[in-house]
């Protein structure tokens, strides 16, 4: 029963909240540019509209093209089940760990790369090739960061890591975790196709990465691709805020009241973090494509120093 509640809670929270994050980021970016911007709920309207529209599929494509949106949504939602939004509802025996999370998300990325090549156009190949480079270069940093927080918690289970971090007072003031946090923040920016790595609002062939990969999609498939990307973004945000800024230890109530309060705090954290991402995005410009390796190297150095700090200073 506890598991059913957990699954339902995770799915509902992640699906409903994911488009909101995009809305907030877009709104804040618009405000920093002295524009009024689209409504915060715009992505919900977009998704609804896309789901009702008919779709256009290229004659060149194979079954991979049609299957990919479902695989993307499935991998994103499966990843969503692996990262508890609140430790109040998470089941005790949890047969998944953080390395699995990385590989579940990689499954979605693999098929997105294939689907981009399926239509036989130029843009898809462009996006796929660029995405392949970016994701390869940030992977070492991601795994080293994961190892540091895992070692500090003596576990690779995400739930155990979150619980262990709750007993650390002010984790972000510990050098090991500060460095790892910034390493993971760069990874988040790169994985969610944001400035300075990629620009989510561009359709210029010189710069687009993620947009080039979904260019051939329309209608219902496009809605699923967009939703999958939004959920993946929220999963990574949840991972970062619940590991580095745990809140469940402050909630004294047990039971349903505690759960509700915990969810409320989680919501506030997500909104706050979205604003942070938006401010970060608004305050930088997109890098040249071949400067991205420098960013990946920076992320790796931060992750590696974080790992060293863990052994020098402990947690």
């Amino acid at each position: 029963m506890a598991i059913v509640i957990y699954i339902a809670l995770q799915l509902v929270v992640m699906i409903l909240l994911a488009p909101l994050v995009n809305g907030i980021i877009k709104k804040v970016k618009a405000l920093t540019q002295k524009r009024r911007g689209a409504p915060v709920l715009q992505m919900y309207f977009d998704l609804y509209k896309l789901l009702n529209k008919s779709s256009v599929v290229s004659q060149v494509t194979s079954w991979i093209f049609i299957a990919t949106p479902y695989i993307i949504v499935s991998s994103a939602l499966t990843a969503a089940l692996l990262v508890p939004v609140t430790t109040f509802a998470s089941p005790i025996a949890f047969p998944f760990d953080i390395i699995m999370l990385v590989y579940v998300l990689a499954l979605g990325r693999f098929f997105m790369g294939l689907a981009a090549l399926d239509a036989g156009g130029t843009f898809g190949g462009m996006g796929s090739s660029r995405e392949a480079m970016i994701s390869s270069l940030i992977e070492p940093s991601l795994l080293v960061s994961i190892f540091t927080i895992g070692l500090a918690s003596q576990s690779t289970s995400i739930n155990d890591i979150m619980l262990a971090m709750q007993s650390v007072s002010l984790p972000l003031l510990r050098p090991a975790f500060t460095l790892t946090f910034f390493a993971l923040f760069i990874i988040l920016i790169a994985e969610t196709s944001r400035i300075p790595v990629d620009d989510p609002s561009t359709h210029l062939e010189l710069t687009m990465v993620h947009e080039a990969m979904v260019l051939e999609y329309s209608g219902r498939q496009l809605a699923l691709m967009e939703l999958g990307a939004a959920i993946k973004q929220l999963v990574l945000i949840t991972l970062i805020i619940n590991v580095f800024l745990p809140h469940d230890q402050f909630i004294a109530y047990a039971g349903i009241g505690g759960l509700m309060l915990s969810l409320l705090v989680y919501l506030i954290k997500v909104i706050g973090f979205s604003v942070l991402i938006a401010v970060f995005e608004a305050s930088t410009v997109k890098f040249r494509f071949f400067s991205i390796p420098n960013l990946a190297a920076l992320s790796f150095i931060l992750a590696f120093l974080g790992f060293l700090q863990y052994f020098v200073l402990g947690r």
Partner: peptide, 29 residues
């Protein structure tokens, strides 16, 4: 920890490599 980084890099590049291999030879025109 460098072994971890090497494994991660080679794993990600391998995935990219086989996206290329399958995508170029089996998909498209």
């Amino acid at each position: 920890v460098f072994a971890v980084a090497a494994l991660a890099l080679s794993g990600a590049l391998a995935a990219a490599c086989f996206i290329k291999l399958f995508g170029i030879s089996f998909l498209g025109l």
